[in-house]
Write a protein that binds this DNA or RNA. Sequence first.
RNA 1: GCGGGGGUUGCCGAGCCCGGUCAAAGGCGCAGGGCUUAGGACCCUGUCUCACAGGAGUUCGAGCGUUCGAAUCGCUCCCCCCGCACCA
Length: 925
Amino acid sequence: MSGFDIHRIEREGVERWEHAFEADPVSGEKFYLNVAYPYPSGGMHVGHGRTYIIPDVLARFQRMKGRQVLFPMAFHVTGTPVIGISRRIAHGDEEAIGLYRDLYRVPQDVLDRFVDPMEIVGFFSQEYMRIMGRCGLSIDWRRRFTTIDPQYSRFIEWQYSHLHERGYVVRGAHPVKYCPQCENPVGDHDLLEGDRAEIIRFTLVMFRFRDALIPTATLRPETTYGVTNLWVDPGVTYVRIRIDGQEWIVSPEAAEKLALQDHEVFVLEQIPGSDLVDKTVTHPLSGEVPILPAAFVDPDMGTGIVMSVPAHAPFDYIALRDLQRQGRYTGLRPISLIAVEGYGEFPAVDAVERAGILDQNDPGMDALTQEVYSAEFSRGRLHERYGGKTVREARDEVAALMTEQYGSVVMYEFDTRPVICRCGSRVYLKILHDQWFLQYSDPLWKEEVHRQVAAMSLVPTEVRAEFDRTIDWLKDWACTRRVGLGTKLPWDPAWIIEPLSDSTIYMAYYTIAHRLREIPAENLTPEVFDYIFLGRGEPETLDRETLDELRQEFTYWYPYDYRFSAKDLISNHLTFQLFHHRAIFPGELQPGGMVVFGMGLLNGAKMSSSKGNVFLLEDALDEFGADTVRMFLVGSAEPWQDFDWRNELVSSTRKQIERFWNTVQEAMSAEGGQPIDTWLKSRLQRRIAATTAALEGFQTRQALQEAFFGIEADLKWYRRRLTEGSAGGAVLWDLSRVWIRLLAPIIPFTCEAAWREIGEEGLVSFAPWPVADEELIEPEIELAEDILARTVEDIESIMKLIQMEPASITLFIAPEWKRTIFSTVAASSDRTKVTREVMAIEGMRQRGREAADVVKQITRLVLKFPPQLVDQLRQSAIDEREVFEGAREFLEKEFGVPVRILDAEESRHAKASGALPFKPAIVIE
RNA sequence: GCGGGGGUUGCCGAGCCCGGUCAAAGGCGCAGGGCUUAGGACCCUGUCUCACAGGAGUUCGAGCGUUCGAAUCGCUCCCCCCGCACCA
């Protein structure tokens, strides 16, 4: 008998498993599962732990079911994050250094080398491997790679050549957030402020002003028909610029922005806003209109000059009203062009007057503007003389007309401000040229992916709607970058393939990764990959034998069965990979299924490395042990639910594992037989079946409930039912052999040790999964125990109530005719008419009132019992008296007093008449 | 705003899809008892309210409704969380 030494057990497990899970093709059935690989730029926390442990539990389960299981892992190192981190560390950024030194506890000498980004990924990928090993992950590490390995780059080049050939990669221009200080596009995570800012596309409506143009930015080009004037701020100094061969008048801020948006801009001269006031401009859709002064005009928004549609824009109306109240421009009248339900001829006028707005500085103006705009957009319609279309339709049409005929161009702006880069500089919008896009907008491609999603197994099923929605919503994706680590675009090497785009079909790469490592990258030509993955061509850089082996291994594993990932990747990665699989691989190699995980919380708050709200996985392993961590992560929630890590809950998990270990130890000395053994065996078969079903459905938490807590509960009743002095029969030994295997996927270290402890050969990790034996299921015996347990509960609750020292217990068994009523009630479909049904039975009527009362009581009893139990009771021939007689000794032991079993009808005791079938009357004296 | 998911007894979290096993699993916390030199270990009991005979009453975000019967079905409302792009 050995003590439970968790450290020794874990050490031994890691050693014994070192090469155990290296999986090569065999003749049997395979199961290939994979997980979104990590980006090793920081420490692993318990949230990461769960992401890999749950798939591992399922991998281990499938392996014990006899399948050849492939569970690989690699490291994603492409992109810019580590470059940024190393730069910050090199610059002595205290925040970054603190994070790595204090939170992740990187040794100083290693930290010093972090000025090189490769050192960061090198260090952390080793750490990840080591910690994943400590977690007991059954990974085939031979297949590990990083996304900047030269062989992997050849693979990505092959993939992109195909995408390019098939027209899925196209060239275009693209607006991005851009920092002029860093001279780089910036992502949301690079921003100090404004990370929620969205890019808005404005149409510039070009008004002619003498020999120049005055562009005004609008989101509602269709309202140009209703323009009555322009607004300028007389206090602002505007500039005249030469731009793309024309001359425009705009604010200086606008000139700067336009210069980044695909225009060549030269500032010619300055023009005070006051000089523009009272001049006139013209536009084909509005005719000649004056320029008026207004204070609300923001030179940093759009072009700094605004077109005015007082009939439909509250700001325009109020500014006009302010002027007219001073007796100026009283001749100007709003021009109505949109009819919208709930408003009169001039919606903006109605809204402003209704809301009682005082002037253009009123704080309610923004909300009011929103109200009018959205009412017009959703329900508005242009008047007949302007075409009669809905606003929704007219907007795009007029915008197109403007661009084609009236010289309009597009200008981009952020919807919120300020937007500030980490470097402190203001962020602008820049049009990037010659950008390469993955054409996810292609309707045929989308359609194919929709069909794929429909054919896949998705867990949980609710995510299907989210996938379909993502497919519809995806637009073209800019798939190349100027900076960062990654593979160069094969036909345009000035670009690097972006990190999300180089990680879409690497699950195929795993199948041969360990073999490719031995082949010089230059030999991995596109022809080689064509041969391996598509089975065609005659490559010359590799010998035929190797090629055939590679092809065989690929086709053995592929397609993968399940991919696991957290749910935040649905809207990009998980959907992208489906697009790419459709584009590259034939129908029979498409993904089989996906399991989408919930998020991790720490003490109820969202886990986040950047906020320091994390619990490091290694600390958890040190403090609680690997199996405890595994069991907690598996047991706290189903995979797709959010889970919450709380230390105090974790420590109780540890005690549970020790309890299991002790039970197994004790069972080794069990011998002989006990009457209750059959019951335990029967229950065990049900636990096996339930655990198996739960794991087949990816319900790891449910599986643990059955396999651990369920069996424990059974054992508790079993021990209670043992005869005095017995520690249990040899059945406990059988139970241990099953129990260890049922828990092996979840707490493999403990189970591996226990398996050896009980004298079994080989690794439990490869032991056959238990199968429920129908022959051992004894419904009648389970039923009898059920009735007994209910009666014990009844006795206990009475004893508690009466608070007296009992001298004896008498059970009265209900007579046969009540059993007849029970069957009738149980079988009845309409319980409101059951009394009539019973009274129709021969002999019932003369029992009169008593029978009617009993029907009422039994109906209540039937409703209270589980429906399944009722069915069983109705159909079984169980002899109640025998059940209780058989348990008399047990009852006497339990309650420490003599127990009598009597027939109710043979007693005159007042309580005896209350006996019901399967619920004897109880008298305690 | 758009899309997805939720609100259950002190807390976490089952159950709701397939209405009666539900006062509602399990865990944590708390209380009492046992064991013990001691215990942050282990075991037992209790933990909505009332009740000295196995019972009754009020609960499952709020409010209506369907039904003999609703945490579970329908409608309305309130609140919370997640994703929304060039980024891992």
